[in-house]
Amino acid sequence: MPILGFIGARIGVALFTMFVVSLIVFIAMHLLPGGFEQIILGPIQTQATRDAITNEFGLDAPIAEQFVKWAIAVLHGDFGVSMITRTPVAAELVRRAPATLQLAAMSIFTTLVVGLPLGIASGIGDTRRSVRVGARLLGALGASTPDFVLGTILVYVFSVWALGLTVGGYAPFLENPIANLRAMALPTLTLSVPGIALVLRTTRESVLNVMTSGHITTAVSRGESPSQIVRRHILRNASLPILTVTTMYLGALMGGSVIVETLFTIPGIGLYTWNALNNRDYQVTESAVLIFSILLVAVNMCVDIAYALLDPRIQGRRS
């Protein structure tokens, strides 16, 4: 089946991209001014100490060799050691991953569950002008408010009127579900609002686009019921732009997690990264950037494949 070849090609491209990305991250961190070497070695005066450190981090080896060593270590799950805390980065990342993943999952879920139906409904329905303009305004507002602005406002609002939700006070879900949800509600809300606005707008436009295409007219002329039309024609045909937008949103989520975890004191990868950056802990920053990038490439690859599965016209073309 040609689809298998397509998937294989996509995976190959993704792996290659990941390699290129890791190369770029490594080079950026190590070679350019202000990078690894200068920061570590710069302030050190005595030659002996410099030599010791150079040896410890293997900085005198040729760059290619450094890269290979680093790449191999990474593939084995060894992300080095935090320069501040002297603990393995990998272990810390694993410890903090659940919080970030939960935040991401809840945000995506909320975004899609709220945004998709609203978008479809507003695309299909015949709405009055005032409702349309209102929705447009709200959607634009949701998309224009930066997450840190919304987050900060939410922090303020909910510190004055608690409503049972907390800022901070995170506990792992399995230990204390109530406390967990109370702490995660606001960050999820902050991250979801721009997502909902984006998904709603894209879904609506995509549905409108499909609605005006010829095969909907044909379906109507056959007397198909509205639910049949949505199921058979609209969902599959309108889903492509929605997929694109979800990918964009996932990318924004990764960046947003840094901001939101900081604001709401959620001990996830984002907060870890931000602390590391402020403390000039390069090992951690580099690892975090690498992880995010790899994830992104993987997600993009999955979306590409999903695209091809949904729209048979794409399979026919050479990628």
């Binding site: 295409s213 010829g214 095969h215 007219t217 044909t218 379906a219 002329s221 007397g223 058979r232 024609h233 599959r236 045909n237 949904l310 729209d311 048979p312 016209r313």
Partner: peptide, 15 residues
Amino acid sequence: LGFVFQNPMSALNPT
């Protein structure tokens, strides 16, 4: 009723 439209490609669901 049965309808036949001008452009068959746009009358058929592409997916």
